[in-house]
Design a protein around this nucleic acid. Structure first.
Lengths: 345, 345
DNA sequence: TTGAAAGCGCTAACAA
DNA sequence: TTGTTAGCGCTTTCAA
């Protein structure tokens, strides 16, 4: 059996078979205007529509109403388990409200981000949720802003206050992680940050430095991984271990993927965790508890993050204006097996 | 600074400022028709368009051309790490070809699947890639087929041959897993399948039974988990352990998430892996190597799966017809730490 | 309660 | 090489 292109039923087809004008069909099929049509007509129209498998053409509707009922969601890396729960949070908020989510990956590339935002703008999305955002990624964002597009930044601040921001409270999360390590007796700490041009990396990094100030006799330093990936984390930890000097007894990683790279690096060098080195991650991605050892990490409320971003966006769309507010959701430290007492020196 | 709704520039705005007719603007801005316009005009139009931040309205274009240049992708669970690489494979194939991917999650719910497919059909996607597909999910699929929509099934066969199928070679993967276990001396095997109404579960399950037939003196049985999740796998393994009778020395899981649940269950019951029980997963999701113990599993070429599904779909769109062919990509066994010699009895 | 008519922004056939 | 015209399928005034 082969599938051939059948012409899709239009509102005129329904009108003809139901013996009414297409305007009446439109009214009968839309919840907001259904009450203007007699019950008998509504019933008849619905029956015919079902028979024909009629589904209204969203492009025609959008063209007429100048609303696409679509929201563009831009994320840097779908394969990072941090993002899927956020996307589901966004969908859980938007779908019941009739919106379609257009999801786009950028692979953390500014060029792709520009292309993708242009494509979404071309589809006349009613708003954008942007979880990408290298600091100097102003072009795509500025373009969106220039044409008056509604948007919300998620998790990453693009540096300039063009749009509202919804994120986890990174600073308090890092502070909790450092306090936990301090209490375990750690005095030699390293923070392996993500690329510092990312606002989250910058925030976490300065929070780390700040938090370490209050630990007496602590030696703390920050090093930078090239990316928020397992491989980059592993490579950077390799260097920390091999470059000589005093080896840290604890590592605070910029995110869970970097932390996982740290764990791999430790294994490769015959070091134990948490015996030789304690490790704390960030985000509490799915499976963090299944790594070996189970990862102590800062939990970020991903689902809520997505829901809130969607809520803030819809508010902006409804009110017709947006203020660049900041909404920080609380984070919490989840203590598992990758942190333990500092080895005696 | 607040964002207010500015009217988006249209092709008429560009035409006016460039002192040409809008048809000329259309020609100048489309690669396929650009050669019909004088170089000077193209240059002028492009400059004006850039000045105005003009982005063509995809809804208007789609309405006119009756092509949305969008492909709908339906998946059951974005948070299952198996799917994101597939989605990226799809995007990598489609984006360079000018298509936008509309991604939709169903949470494995038939009701959501129906709603989501209707929504995508309403947006007049040029085609669908469906990685959902509970066996009796005929309604959404049948509806799509009835209106002549192009589609490809990915990984899961919906049972009826409405559309082409692209999937991994599950049977050979399971056979390799069983052969590996047999060679390690295992004779008491259990397969914890996913819901058997899923075609993949059914395929893997019968492949398991078949493969076990060739092991002399083997005792093999199949049990069913309620879902392809960690929790369902853990619960099912709990029952296997506590229900008494002879405990299996090896478990073949329906997918990696179930396998992870099995690992958790073993830990909870004070059993070691692979010392007491060997475990094999399926899919080789990201992080499978970071579990404890690192998971022996069957690798499915996810990225290629996505690329191939997109390719097959575009072929169907271009040719105007589709045959319900089946394309199986090769799988391979990845041996890690979760399998070892059977304990002596 | 229903119908008629206009128009959203674009492309493509036809004309010049 | 450029302009004119029509129309994709829908919603929304305005009229009846």
């Amino acid at each position: 059996m082969s599938v051939e292109g059948t012409r899709r039923a239009t509102i005129d087809d329904v009108a003809r078979l139901a013996n009414v004008h297409k305007a009446t069909v439109s009214r009968a099929l839309n919840a907001a205007t259904r009450h203007q049509v007699s019950a008998a007509t509504v019933e008849r129209v619905e029956r015919v529509a079902a028979e024909l498998g009629y589904v209204a053409n969203a492009m025609a509707r959008g063209l007429r109403t100048s609303s696409s009922m679509a929201i563009g969601v831009v994320i840097p890396d779908l394969t990072n388990p941090f993002f899927p729960p956020i996307v589901r949070g966004i969908e859980h908020f938007l779908q019941p409200r009739g919106y379609t989510v257009l999801l786009a990956n950028t692979d953390s590339s500014e060029a792709i981000e520009r292309a993708v935002v242009a494509s979404l703008l071309g589809r006349r999305v009613d708003g954008l949720i942007i979880a990408s955002g290298v600091k100097d990624h102003q072009s795509a964002l500025a373009e969106a802003h220039a044409v008056g597009a509604k948007a919300v930044m998620l998790n990453r601040d693009a540096g300039s206050a063009l749009y509202p921001l919804v994120a986890g409270n990174d600073a308090s999360g890092v502070a909790a992680a450092v306090a936990h390590l301090a209490q375990l007796g750690h005095r030699d700490l390293v923070h392996i940050a993500g690329p510092l041009e990312l606002s989250t990396s910058a925030t976490r990094s300065s929070a780390f430095v700040e938090a370490c100030r209050s630990i007496p006799r602590a030696r703390a330093r920050v090093v930078e991984a090239e990316a928020l990936t397992v491989e980059a984390g592993q490579r950077r930890m390799d260097r920390v271990i091999t470059e000589g000097g005093r080896r840290p007894t604890a590592v605070v990683a910029g995110n869970d993927l970097i932390a996982l790279g740290v764990l791999r690096s430790l294994r490769d060098h015959g070091l134990t965790c948490p015996g030789d080195v304690s490790v704390v991650g960030f985000n509490d991605i799915t499976f963090a508890e299944d790594f070996w050892p189970p990862l102590t990490t800062v939990r970020v409320p991903t689902h809520e993050l997505g829901m809130e971003a969607a809520r803030v966006l819809l508010e902006g769309i409804a009110s017709g204006e947006q203020e660049p507010t900041t909404l920080l959701l609380p984070t919490s430290l989840i203590v598992r097996g990758s942190t333990g007492p500092a080895a005696a020196r």
